[in-house]
Design a protein around this nucleic acid. Structure first.
Lengths: 264, 264
DNA sequence: TAGATTGTTAATCGATTAACAATC
DNA sequence: TAGATTGTTAATCGATTAACAATC
C-alpha cells in the first residue's frame, strides 16, 4: 500500500532535477510568448525576467538539457521552444480524461491551455446519470460505467480527478487499474497509488492557507508581534485542550472535504 | 519593478521553514478527519501516514511549532488542530474576493473547503456587465467598477485571480492598490507585484506538463530509452532550427493563454 | 518498571546563487 | 578585436532523513 507521493524521489535517468523540471513549463510559456512576437533570440537575463526567476538559475537549468545557447548572443527562441517541448514530452499527443464534471471539471474541460500543449481531452466522465450525454466544452459527458473502456480505447495514460474528496480514491483505483499511470488530483485527499504511478495534486484550500500564514505574519509585524505564540510558555497539560476557536477550525461544518484516513 | 515571486525568501520571523509551512495544511486536514472521528490522540507515525509524509519529517516540522506531543503517547488531536490552526492564522476570519467569475471562478466560489477554514468569500467580481447581479454560489456577482470599494469596505487582504491571462496583471495592480497584500493567481501569467505582496500561483497546465515529463520517461524505459535526446550529438547550428513539431508546440492556436511579457 | 514515542542531533542530499573562465 | 553572454564551478543554503537519547 504505497502512499501517494506528490513527485518522484528524483529523476535519475539522465538526471534532470525535479526543481528544474517544474520550471521548464515556465520557460516554455515565456518563450512561446516571445515566439508569437517573432523575437528571434533572447538572453538568459531577459528570459529569466519574463519567467520570474533569476538568470543564474535559468542557465543552470538549461545546462541540464544541453548547450543550446550561443555565448555573446543568447538563445534562439524557436530552437529552445522545441528543445524544451521535446524534453517535457509535449511534441507528442497526450490523451487525458477528466473525471468529475462539476464546476471545476467543466472549468478544466474549457481550459484552453491544454490543447495547445499536446494535451487532448479524450473524454469527460461523471458519475451522475443525468449528466450523461450533456455537452460540456463541446464533448458529451460519459458515464463512469464507461471509464475502463474509454481508457483502453484511447490509450489514456493521464487522468485528472475533479470529483468530491469522497469519490477520489475509488476513481483513482479504477483509473490505475485501467492503465492510467499519471494522475492530477484536485480532490482534497491523499491518494494511495501503487509504485510507478505519479500523482500531483492541486489544492486550492492549501494555497490559501499558506497565504494566510504569511498574511498573519505581516499583520503581526505591524503591531510589533504582540500576539506571538510565546514558545517559551509551553501551554502543555495533557488532556484535550479545546477552545471555541479550535472547534470552528476543526471544521465540523458540512464540508465533505475530508480524506478517508486509514491509520495503521 | 519587482518580479512576482511565488513565495518569500524564507520565513525569518521566529523561523518556520517554508517547506514546513506548506505541509501544515496537510497535517491539519488529516487531524481534522481524526477529530471528526473523535480519535483522541495520534502518533507521529499514524499522522504521517495519513498526511502522506514520513514521520521523521512530521516530527521535525512540529518541532518548529513547539513541543506539543507527549513522549510515549503521541499528540492530542484537538490540541494540535488548534495549535496548527493558530499558527496558520486560521483562527481568524479572512475575507477574500474572487475576481473573474468564469467556469473556474464559479468553481472556486462553490468550493466548500474555504469557509470551514476561516476564509469567507466577501465578493465575486467580474468585468462582464451582463454578469452583474447574477447569483453565483449564493452571492450576487459585482462589477469590476466596485472592486476598490469592496476591498476597502470589507478589509480584504487576500485576492483570488481567476481571470483570463490578459486581464490578470491589471486586476492584480488594482487589488494591490486597493490594499490587498496576498494574491492567489490562477491565470497563467507571471505577476509583477511590489515588495511586501505575496503571490502564489496555481497553474493547471504546468502540472500536466510535469506529469507528461515523467510519463515520457516511463514510456522511454519500457523501450530501453530508444528515443533518448542523445546529449552527446549537440545538434547546434546557429540560426533558427524549426521543425513542424516546434511550430505546433509554440502554440500559434487560439489560446489566449500567454502572459504579457515585458523584457527589460 | 518496561514499552512506546517524542524531540533533537548530525549526516546527507538537493537546490540556489555568485562569480568567472570560455567563447561567440 | 572588444563586448556580450553562456556554461560551469564552487560555495552556500535549506530540506530531508535516520538514529537515538530523553522521557512520558
Amino acid at each position: 500500500m504505497a502512499t501517494g507521493r506528490t513527485h518522484r524521489p528524483a529523476t535519475r535517468s539522465r538526471g534532470i532535477p525535479e526543481a528544474t523540471v517544474a520550471r521548464l513549463p515556465l520557460y516554455l510559456r515565456a518563450l512561446t510568448a516571445l515566439s508569437e512576437r517573432s523575437v528571434p533570440t533572447v538572453s538568459s537575463e531577459e528570459l529569466a525576467t519574463a519567467a520570474g526567476v533569476n538568470s543564474a538559475k535559468l542557465r543552470k537549468d538549461f545546462s541540464y538539457l544541453g548547450s543550446y545557447g550561443t555565448r555573446g548572443v543568447g538563445y534562439d527562441v524557436e530552437y529552445l521552444v522545441y528543445q524544451i517541448s521535446r524534453e517535457l514530452g509535449l511534441t507528442q499527443d497526450w490523451p487525458v480524461v477528466i473525471v468529475g464534471i462539476g464546476n471545476l471539471g467543466a472549468a478544466l474541460a474549457n481550459y484552453g491551455g491544454f490543447a495547445s500543449r499536446g494535451f487532448r481531452v479524450a473524454a469527460l466522465i461523471d458519475a451522475d446519470p443525468a449528466m450523461a450525454g450533456k455537452p460540456v466544452a463541446g464533448l458529451p459527458v460519459r458515464h463512469t460505467d464507461e471509464l475502463e473502456s474509454i481508457i483502453t480505447d484511447n490509450d489514456v495514460s493521464i487522468g485528472v480527478i475533479a470529483t468530491p474528496a469522497g469519490a477520489a480514491q475509488q476513481v483513482c483505483d479504477r483509473l490505475v487499474a485501467a492503465g492510467v499511470t499519471s494522475i492530477l488530483n484536485f480532490a482534497p485527499t491523499v491518494l494511495s497509488v501503487p509504485e510507478g504511478v505519479d500523482v500531483r495534486k492541486v489544492d486550492l484550500s492549501i494555497e490559501l492557507q499558506i497565504l494566510a500564514f504569511h498574511e498573519q505574519r505581516k499583520a503581526g509585524e505591524e503591531t510589533t508581534s504582540a500576539q506571538e505564540p510565546a514558545a517559551a510558555v509551553q501551554p502543555r497539560s495533557g488532556a484535550a485542550v479545546r477552545t471555541p476557536a479550535a472547534g470552528r477550525a476543526a471544521g465540523k461544518g458540512p464540508d465533505g472535504d475530508v480524506p478517508a484516513v486509514m491509520p495503521a
